[in-house]
């Protein structure tokens, strides 16, 4: 009896060791030789590793950025997505990252900022990649003062990069003050591209959350009236490219740190493309009247890519 117990505990220990080792390998994988080799010759590695294909044109003078949503778990999976972003940054040096909210789940102590953000994107931060955050339903307003989020003390704000204007909104509390600000800013905006990003999706095929109809009721007429081109949102923990709605391109990209496997409703009339089997991030490049995008899974697989034509010419 005693021998049997010893045997089984030994077996359990071995199994635990194997699992831990495997996990450690997965966690450290992106930081090993591949990333170093990428730095030396990104194109060669990209060609050699089909998982690191770049579907963006990398044109001189273009606006290059990445998109992540629902990231702040501090989980290994978030770190793996962060590491993959670091690798892609080497073959596609994006200048900044927009964050679609839920930047910090379950607490916002100083240690949380470190574990749920800084360490996950250390490589990008070291490379002076700027992050622009929006607030989700798991975020405290105090994040607006956190320097690396570049919110300048504001819950909703605008910034421009080249010919693109970005609007970060707080969809958890879309009050009259914010709506009037948005309308007045958009009304005087002469940028060629207007991209709004926030947490709750006006359109989504998510089973758990889905489309936020009341939000849409308020913001969509403003987007349409003022020629917003693209809307980036999170909240639903998967990727979905929505079929253009009233001439606007909508994306749901809420799988940067959490995944709701199989949550995209089958045969949804909204879906142009969806991915809900692993976590992901997006990279994008604006070149004149075109916006190229690519969606990369945690493991480096390209799950969607394409080019969007600017809808309205100024």
């Amino acid at each position: 009896m005693k021998i049997a117990m010893r045997k089984s505990s030994g077996l359990l220990l071995t199994v635990a060791f194997v699992i831990v080792s495997a996990l450690m390998q997965v966690i450290t994988l992106p930081q090993t030789g591949l990333a170093q080799e990428l730095a030396k010759n990104p194109k060669a590695i990209s060609a050699a590793n089909p998982a690191l294909k770049l579907a963006l044109p990398l044109k001189e003078g273009s606006v290059r950025f990445a998109i992540i949503g629902d990231t702040g778990t501090g989980s290994n999976a978030q770190y793996q997505v962060g590491a993959m972003m670091g690798m892609y940054h080497e073959i596609f040096p994006f200048q900044f990252v927009v964050m679609l909210g839920d930047n910090m789940y379950g607490g916002e102590k100083p240690k949380d900022y470190e574990n749920k953000f800084e360490r996950a994107y250390q490589k990008l931060l070291n490379n002076k990649v700027k992050f622009y955050a929006s607030l989700g339903n798991h975020d405290q307003t105090t994040q607006v003062n956190y320097e690396p989020f570049n919110m300048n003390g504001k819950e909703f704000y605008r910034f421009t990069k080249g010919n693109v204007a970005f609007y970060a909104l707080n969809s958890t509390y879309m009050d009259k003050r914010q709506i009037e600000w948005l309308e007045s800013e958009l009304a005087k905006d002469t940028s060629e591209w207007k991209i709004c990003f926030f947490h709750h999706p006006p359109y989504s095929s998510g089973g758990k959350h889905g489309s936020e109809n009341q939000l849409r009721e308020i913001v969509e007429p403003i987007f349409v009236k003022h020629g917003v081109n693209v809307v980036l949102t999170g909240h639903d923990h998967f990727y979905e490219r929505i079929k253009p709605q009233k001439g606007i391109y909508y994306f749901v990209s809420g799988g940067g740190g959490k995944l709701r496997k199989g949550d995209v409703k089958a045969n949804s009339p909204l879906t142009a493309k969806a991915f809900d089997t692993d976590m992901h991030f997006m990279i994008a490049e604006v070149v004149g009247d075109s916006l190229y995008f690519q969606v990369v899974s945690r493991t480096g697989e390209t799950v969607d890519s394409g080019v969007l034509a600017r809808q309205r010419k100024n």
């Binding site: 339903n137 958890t172 509390y173 879309m174 009050d175 009259k176 003050r177 709750h200």
Partner: peptide, 24 residues
């Protein structure tokens, strides 16, 4: 701060008395 902040439908917010910017 560990708890979720449930989003208030904007259509409702527009009906309610507007608060000073410090309050929600």
């Amino acid at each position: 701060e560990t708890k979720e902040v449930s989003a208030i439908p904007p259509t409702l917010l527009l009906r309610l008395p507007e608060l000073p910017k410090e309050l929600n």
